[in-house]
Design a protein around this nucleic acid. Structure first.
Length: 752
DNA sequence: CATGGTCGGGAC
DNA sequence: GTCCCGAC
C-alpha cells in the first residue's frame, strides 16, 4: 500500500485522568475538576483539567490553589502517592483497557502514550467497502464529525459524489475511503465509550502527523477528517510549532533560519535547500511534511518498550546523604519490581537491560546528568531488592560519596542528587518452545527475599573509604565489575533466561479477571462477534452528563437486547452454522478446537469445566468461551511474532505490508470474528433482511454488524447542538481560492 | 525550588 | 552506550 493512500487514525482520550476520576466517582461528573499531583505545595501541580473547569479558565500549568481562585467550586482529585512518588497505575490500567478495545478493530495499533494510539485502518476500510456501497453513507452514521475544508458532512459527501469537480487535486478513491474511515472511527469511538465509559476524540487522515494534528481541532468527543486536498488550506495559517516534531528547539531553528512562521511557507524551499540548511534526514522530512507527506508507518505495538520510573529532588529536597539515596533507590526499585512482575505475567517477557540515570548539582551550581546501562547476567535474580542494589552500586560508582565529620553514621554525598531514574528495557520473550505449557513456566518458584537486602549492603558502604582512585574494587570487595562495559561476557553466558518468581495463582487470577469481564457480557457477546459494535446506552455529552452510572448503562444495554430476542436467535443460528463449518474445516488439525474436547463435564448437568481456566461454563457458552481463550492465545502469538519481526531490519513500510498480508491470509487472524468468518469460498449467500442486499454467508455477521453499528451510532452519538454555533464553522468568503470549500477561520481560531 | 513522571527516538 | 530532545 502506498504510504499516501492509507487511512490513519489518532485516537486521543479527552482529559483522560479526569475521566478516570469521574468514572471512579460519578459524583464528579458535570462538575469542574482537575487532577493534581503532590497537593501539599500550593495545592499541587495540575496535570489534567476537565472541560467544565476548562470553560472557567482553569488550565494545566496552574497550581491547585490558582485553580481554586479561578473556580472556587472546583474539585481536585489527587494522583495517589506510593513510596513517596506519584503512582499513575490507575490511569495506566485505564489506558490499557482502552487500548484493548481499540485493538479489536485492527492489529495495526500503536500506543503512543498512556492515552493515545494510532490505528491503521486501511484494510478495515477496504473490507467495509466490500460489504457496503459508499453511496449509502450518510451524515447520521458519523455524528460529531468534522471535515476540514467543508462546512458539513453532506457537503463533503456530495463533493465525493461529484468526484470533487471544483478541486484540481481531488483524490477520489482516497477521499471516499476517508469517508468510510470516518464511519468506522465513529463506531470505534462508540465502542470505546460503551465498553470503558471513556470519551475520546480522533483525527483521520492519510498519515500519522496529520491525524495527530487535526485530532485536537475538535474536542471533546469529536472527530476531524483532513482530506489531502484540504491540507493546503490548513497549512495556510498553521504555525510551524503545531506540527509534531516542530514544537521544540528544532521547530524554532527551522522557523528562524528560514524566516517563516506557517507551514505553507515551507513549500517555497526545495528538498536540496532544506537538506543543506538542516541535514539530509530533516531536510527530506521537512520537504515532505510541507506537502502533507509523512511516511512513518503505524507500528503494531501494544506494550511499552521500556518500563521505568524516576523522581526529581528539586531545590532543598536534593539528596545529600547516602541514607536518603538508598531510601529513594529502594522505593524506585520496589515500584519497578511491582510493575515488572505484572508485565512478565501479562506479556511473557523479561528485560535484559537496566538503565540508571541521575543528575547532581555541582559546586558551581551547574548540574550534570548521566546515565549508565547494565546488561543483566544469567545469575542475576530480577526480584526483591536487586534493582535498587544494582542501581545504588551504579550511582555510587559514578558519584563518589564524602565522609562527614561523623563518618560512620551518615556519609554525605559529594554532590547533592537532583534526579534519580531506573528504566528497564531490551525485553526478550520467554522461550515459548521450552514452555509449551505456560503453567510449567510459572510453577518455577523462587522464594521471595532471596536477594540480599539493602540493609546488607549498608555496613560495607559505611565502612567504605570512598577512595576516588580505587577503581579496582567495588564496595563489597568483589573484583570490580565495570557496569557499563564489562558485561559483554555476561550477555554471552546468559542462556535460559532469568527465572521468574511468579506463582501459578497470579497467572490464574490474571485470566480470571478477563473471564469475569467476559461473563458479565456473555449475552451481548452472543448477539455480535467480539470485535464489533454492541448495543449501547445513552448519548453522553461532555457538558451534560445525565448522571447515570455505568451499571445503569449496562442494564439498559441488556434490556435492549432482551427486546430483540428474534434477532438474537437469527444471529445465533448463523453463528452455529459457521461454527459447524469451522469444525469440519479444521477438525482433523486438532488445533484450538481441542480446548473443547479437553473439557470435562462437571457433575452439574449443564455446566462444563473449562480445562484452561477451570471455570464452570454453561454448556451453551462453551464455543464462545473457547473462542475467548483462542483469541487470547492468538493475540499472544501475534505479539510475540511482531516482536520478533521487529528485530529483523526489514524496511518499515514493507513490514507493515507483510503484517497486513499475513493477517489477511494466514491463520494468525486475531479476532474471533475473522476466525469464524474466513472458512471457505463455497459458503452460500443470503439476502439481508434489512437492506435486501445479497451477502455471502461468510460475510453475513459483518454485514449485520454494519446495520447494528448504524443503529448504535444514532442512539449513542447524536450530534451536539453547539457544533455550528458562532464563527467556528463559517465558510471562508474568499472566492479567489481555487477550492471554494474552505474554512480558514476555523483553523485560525483553533490555533490562536 | 516549582508540571513531573514516563515514554520513544535520533545523534554521535 | 550515552546524551538529549520532544511529547503527553
Amino acid at each position: 500500500m502506498d504510504a499516501q493512500n492509507k487511512i490513519v487514525v489518532l485516537i486521543d482520550m479527552d482529559c483522560f485522568y479526569c475521566q478516570v476520576e469521574e468514572n471512579l466517582n460519578p459524583e464528579l461528573k458535570g462538575k469542574p475538576i482537575a487532577v493534581v499531583q503532590y497537593n501539599p505545595w500550593k495545592g499541587g501541580g495540575i496535570i489534567a483539567v476537565n472541560y467544565v473547569a476548562k470553560a472557567q479558565g482553569v488550565t494545566r500549568h496552574m497550581r491547585g490553589d490558582e485553580a481554586k481562585e479561578k473556580c472556587p467550586e472546583i474539585q481536585l482529585p489527587s494522583v495517589p502517592c506510593q513510596r513517596g512518588k506519584a503512582d499513575i497505575s490507575k490511569y495506566r490500567n485505564a489506558g490499557k483497557k482502552v487500548a484493548e478495545v481499540l485493538q479489536k478493530f485492527t492489529p495495526l495499533m500503536e500506543r503512543a502514550s498512556i492515552d493515545e494510539a494510532y490505528l491503521d485502518i486501511t484494510i478495515q476500510v477496504e473490507e467495509r467497502l466490500k460489504i457496503i456501497n459508499s453511496e449509502t453513507i450518510n451524515a447520521e452514521m458519523m455524528p460529531n464529525t468534522f471535515i476540514l475544508g467543508y462546512q458539513s458532512i453532506n457537503e463533503f459527501i456530495s463533493d465525493i459524489q461529484n468526484y470533487g469537480q471544483d478541486c484540481i487535486d481531488f483524490d477520489y478513491e482516497h477521499t471516499k475511503r476517508l469517508l468510510v474511515g470516518a464511519v468506522i472511527v465513529s463506531e470505534i469511538r462508540a465502542t470505546v465509550f460503551q465498553e470503558t465509559g471513556y470519551q475520546c476524540s480522533a483525527g483521520i487522515s492519510h498519515n500519522k502527523i496529520l491525524a495527530k494534528l487535526v485530532c485536537g481541532m475538535n474536542k471533546p468527543n469529536k472527530q476531524t477528517v483532513v482530506p489531502k486536498h484540504s491540507v493546503n488550506i490548513l497549512y495556510k495559517t498553521l504555525p510551524l510549532k503545531k506540527v509534531k516534531h516542530l514544537g521544540g528547539k528544532f521547530g524554532d531553528l527551522v522557523s528562524n533560519t528560514l524566516k517563516i512562521k506557517v507551514m505553507a511557507e515551507l513549500q517555497r524551499f526545495t528538498e536540496k535547500e532544506l537538506q543543506s540548511k538542516f541535514d539530509d534526514r530533516n531536510g527530506t522530512w521537512l520537504y515532505n511534511i510541507a506537502r502533507g507527506v509523512d511516511t512513518e508507518p503505524v507500528q503494531a505495538r501494544f506494550n511499552p518498550k521500556s518500563i521505568g520510573c524516576c523522581k526529581q529532588f528539586r531545590g532543598k529536597s536534593a539528596l545529600t546523604n547516602l541514607d536518603s539515596l538508598r531510601k529513594w533507590l529502594k522505593d524506585l526499585g520496589d515500584e519497578i519490581n511491582d510493575r515488572l512482575e505484572k508485565d512478565s505475567l501479562e506479556n511473557n517477557r523479561t528485560p535484559k537491560q537496566m538503565v540508571v540515570s541521575f543528575s547532581s548539582q555541582m559546586q558551581d551550581g551547574r548540574d550534570i546528568s548521566s546515565s549508565r546501562s547494565y546488561n543483566f547476567a544469567a545469575e542475576d535474580e530480577l526480584c526483591g531488592d536487586f534493582f535498587s542494589i544494582k542501581a545504588l552500586e551504579i550511582v555510587l560508582d559514578c558519584t563518589r560519596t564524602m565522609n562527614s565529620s561523623d563518618e560512620e553514621i551518615n556519609p554525605k554525598l559529594k554532590a547533592p542528587i537532583k534526579f534519580l531514574g531506573i528504566s528497564l528495557g531490551k525485553f526478550e520473550d520467554h522461550d515459548s518452545k521450552k514452555t509449551k505449557n505456560i503453567k510449567d513456566y510459572f510453577s518455577i518458584n523462587h522464594s521471595k527475599g532471596h536477594c540480599s537486602s539493602m540493609e546488607m549492603l549498608e555496613p560495607k558502604l559505611n565502612a567504605e573509604s570512598f577512595d576516588q582512585n580505587d577503581k579496582t574494587k567495588d564496595r563489597i570487595g568483589r573484583p570490580h565489575q565495570d557496569v557499563s562495559k564489562s558485561d559483554n561476557n555476561a550477555v554471552e553466558k546468559r542462556d535460559s533466561g532469568i527465572q521468574s518468581s511468579f506463582t501459578l495463582d497470579k497467572q490464574e487470577s490474571f485470566f480470571a479477571k478477563f473471564l469475569q469481564k467476559d461473563e458479565d457480557k456473555e449475552i451481548a457477546d452472543l448477539r455480535t462477534p467480539a470485535c464489533t459494535i454492541v448495543t449501547c446506552g445513552d448519548e453522553s455529552n461532555d457538558t451534560n452528563y445525565s448522571g447515570s452510572t455505568i451499571d445503569e448503562e449496562i442494564n439498559k444495554s441488556i434490556a435492549l437486547f432482551e427486546e430483540d430476542r428474534e434477532e438474537v436467535d437469527r444471529i445465533s443460528s448463523i453463528r452455529n452454522l459457521l461454527q459447524m463449518s469451522k469444525d469440519n474445516f479444521e477438525g482433523t488439525e486438532q488445533n484450538q478446537a481441542e480446548v473443547l474436547s479437553k473439557s470435562k463435564i462437571d457433575e452439574n448437568a449443564m455446566k462444563v469445566k473449562c480445562s484452561d481456566c477451570g471455570k464452570l461454563i454453561p454448556e451453551s457458552m462453551t464455543v464462545i468461551h473457547a473462542d475467548y481463550h483462542l483469541a487470547l492465545s492468538i493475540r499472544n502469538e501475534e505479539r510475540q511474532q511482531l516482536h520478533k519481526e521487529k528485530k529483523n531490519n526489514i524496511d518499515l513500510a514493507d513490514k507493515s505490508k507483510t503484517i497486513q498480508n499475513e493477517k489477511k491470509e494466514s491463520k494468525t487472524n486475531n479476532s474471533i470474528k475473522s476466525f469464524l468468518v474466513k472458512l471457505n469460498d463455497t459458503v452460500p449467500s443470503e439476502m439481508c433482511s434489512e437492506c435486501g442486499k445479497r451477502v455471502q454467508l461468510d460475510s453475513y455477521l459483518e454485514h449485520l454488524d454494519f446495520h447494528e453499528a448504524q443503529r448504535l451510532n444514532k442512539e449513542l452519538n447524536r450530534p451536539t447542538q453547539t457544533n455550528n454555533s458562532g464563527a467556528k464553522r463559517k465558510r471562508n468568503s474568499d472566492s479567489s481560492e481555487k477550492k471554494p470549500k474552505v474554512m480558514c477561520k476555523t483553523i485560525d481560531l483553533f490555533f490562536r
